[in-house]
């Protein structure tokens, strides 16, 4: 069982309880041992770094110092919220780059009897741990109730793959990690082009017009793609899209009802946990109706290796090869029988 220091972040205590409940069950099932950092504090979310840098990073680094002191064998810190993840990772990087910031932060930490050497603790996000340390093969092994028939729009938000201070993501603009994870659960994954667009963050609080416009774009596109629900990795994204649909409908005269859930909730359902135990029902835009579609579609036929390229019409030109095809066959040709 691999061990990680877990930084829950404030939202998992209240609005993101469904995340906390589901990820605990799922990680347990996957052999991911999350040890909560004792006496952790708020990461400052998106606001504090904009107010004053040194205190903001002292606030963040305190968590890293605590984790460093409490860990046994060099365990990384795992965050489940994208904002928390980014703040922790940025503290690591900026303190390393700026001796001045490092000195300021450590002066503050010293007041509490703590010290942190930047870079000593690895900071990671839960999705990335699931993808890289657990792996899709292990995930598939635990799927007992494939999500066939459920059409999902994977939504990462803007803070996870960018700016990626530790170079953990292969593709920053259109990462397909969440897509592949959800597909491995048996769900039908739509090619959601806005997967790394901003959810508005706290704009809903300070400039509702801007915030609601950003949310509307995301929901419009998910509906256009006929998704049953959106799936996210971040409590801030979840609450923004989940909680403001009424206000949004009133402002824009729309009738959106697009549920949004955490990826761990769907993993839990696929792993056979009870939907309620996975936090379904806690969301404001009810996802339970959509969840009933699970199992309504037959299992899709496996795509043959080096499969045919879609060509709707005899006159149409072939599409390019998919990327994971490598450099193509040795003969520089792709087989397509035309008889």
């Amino acid at each position: 069982m691999s061990r990680y220091m877990y930084y829950p972040g404030c939202s998992t205590e209240r609005s993101g309880r469904a995340y906390r409940e589901s990820l605990s069950a799922v990680c347990d099932r996957l052999g991911v041992n999350l040890v909560e950092i004792e006496d952790w504090n708020c990461c400052g979310a998106t606001e504090y770094v904009g107010v004053s840098l040194s205190p903001a990073y002292a606030l963040i680094a305190r968590n890293l110092a605590l984790a460093e002191a409490a860990r046994e064998n060099g365990e990384p810190v795992v965050a489940s919220c994208s904002a928390c993840y980014l703040n922790l990772a940025k503290a690591n990087q900026y303190m390393r780059e700026s001796p001045q910031l490092n000195a300021h932060v450590n002066t503050a930490l010293a007041a509490g009897g703590l010290h942190y050497d930047p870079g000593t603790v690895e900071v990671r996000h839960l999705l990335e741990v699931v993808m890289h340390d657990v792996g899709l093969d292990a995930v598939r092994e635990h799927v007992v109730k494939p999500l066939q028939g459920l059409r999902v729009a994977p939504y990462l938000g803007c803070m996870l793959p960018r700016p990626d201070p530790d170079h953990r993501w292969k593709n920053h603009e259109r990462p397909d990690d969440l897509d592949r994870l959800l597909a491995s659960l048996g769900a039908e994954v739509v090619d959601y082009p806005l997967k790394t667009e901003c959810c508005g963050g706290h704009m809903t609080q300070i400039a509702p017009k801007v915030g609601l416009e950003l949310i509307k774009r995301l929901i419009d596109e998910a509906e256009r793609q006929q998704a049953d629900m959106m799936v996210t990795v971040c409590p801030m994204c979840q609450i923004n899209i989940d909680a403001y649909q009424g206000e949004l409908n009133a402002r824009f005269h729309t009738k959106h009802r697009m549920p949004i859930v955490f990826f761990t909730q769907l993993m839990g359902v696929a792993f056979g946990f009870d939907a309620k135990a996975m936090g379904f029902g806690r969301e404001l835009t009810d996802a339970r109706a959509a969840l009933r579609k699970v199992g309504t579609a037959p299992e899709p036929a496996p795509v043959p290796a080096g499969g045919h390229r879609p060509r709707p019409d005899k006159r149409a030109l072939p599409m390019p090869r998919p990327l994971d095809d490598g450099n193509g066959s040795a003969s520089g040709a792709t087989s397509e029988v035309v008889r």
């Binding site: 390229r309 030109l317 072939p318 390019p320 090869r321 193509g328 066959s329 003969s331 520089g332 040709a333 792709t334 087989s335 397509e336 029988v337 035309v338």
Partner: peptide, 14 residues
């Protein structure tokens, strides 16, 4: 047997 020509036709022809 007709195949997509990945080299000369850059995958656009057969």
């Amino acid at each position: 047997k007709k195949v997509i020509d990945e080299t000369y036709e850059a995958g656009l022809g057969y």
